[in-house]
């Protein structure tokens, strides 16, 4: 499902990703760990084409990206199959919670309003926010917002989900409620890549762990091998 081969990404002459290859991350839950500035976010953004790279190639959910500018058409089909959840949630503040969730299905998948809405309410129920469908994002707590963001990404029925430190902007109580949702998702067989500093979570949920250090893969393998 996910393969990365000798990926090189430079910023201002510095290699922020240096010959990164992911071998065993075919399916399941991959945890990306490593020190701050080691390139975790950059690698994740490369996976759904938000960043271009200079050398190497990658394949996600059957879509292949190569070095250089990505053709918009390639990105549009890739992103239907790859969902992304951001550290800062990035909910659409002008839309209600349910409209945040239905936007993609309506505009991209051309679902009717009633179909998209029905699925959105199911997803909101699944992340525990059925009562907040008509609220504005700004009225929700951080943990609730992040769960809406997860529902929004899931509404596209992605084959791969990418999470960039989904809980680092949250306090412990809110962190727990978001992690519960992600662990649930993992159990249901969703392929995902999660950037995290939380080794406990990685040990509990991940099937494969990749540790980056200064843009290189320091270690990768099953959780016990990498995290000890």
């Amino acid at each position: 499902m996910i393969a990365v081969e000798s990926l090189v990404k430079t910023r201002g002459g510095v290699r922020v990703l240096d010959e990164v290859s992911l071998a065993g991350a075919a399916g399941g839950v991959t945890a990306l760990v490593g020190a701050s500035g080691s390139g975790k976010t950059t690698l994740l953004r490369c996976l759904n084409g938000l960043e271009t790279f200079e050398a190497g190639s990658l394949a996600v959910a059957g879509h292949r990206l190569v070095a250089g500018p990505h053709p918009p058409a390639t990105l549009e089909v890739l992103r239907r199959d790859v969902g992304m959840v951001f550290q800062q949630f990035n909910l659409f503040p002008h839309l209600s919670v349910v409209d945040n969730v239905t936007l993609g299905p309506r505009v991209v998948l051309r679902e009717t309003v009633s179909v998209a809405r029905g699925r959105a309410l199911d997803l909101l129920d699944r992340v525990g926010l059925a009562d907040f469908a008509t609220a504005r994002p700004a009225t929700l707590s951080g943990g609730q917002q992040q769960r809406v963001a997860i529902a929004r990404a899931l509404a596209m029925r992605p084959r791969v989900m990418l999470f960039d430190e989904p809980t680092s902007a949250l306090d412990p109580a809110m962190t727990a409620e978001v992690l519960d949702v992600i662990v649930d998702l993992a159990r249901s067989g969703q392929t995902m890549v999660v950037v995290t500093h939380d080794h406990g979570f990685a040990r509990r949920a991940a099937t494969w762990v990749v540790e980056l250090a200064a843009g290189r893969v320091a270690r990768q393998g099953p959780p016990p091998d990498v995290l000890g």
Binding site: N48, L50, P72, L75, E76, V77, R79, R80, V82, G83, M84, F86, Q88, N90, L91, F92, L103, G104, V107, V108, R152, A153, M156
Partner: peptide, 15 residues
């Protein structure tokens, strides 16, 4: 982040 979030959902730039 708004444009990135929208494009991550598969919206084209115009959408």
């Amino acid at each position: 982040g708004q444009l990135e979030a929208a494009m991550s959902l598969g919206l084209t730039k115009w959408q």
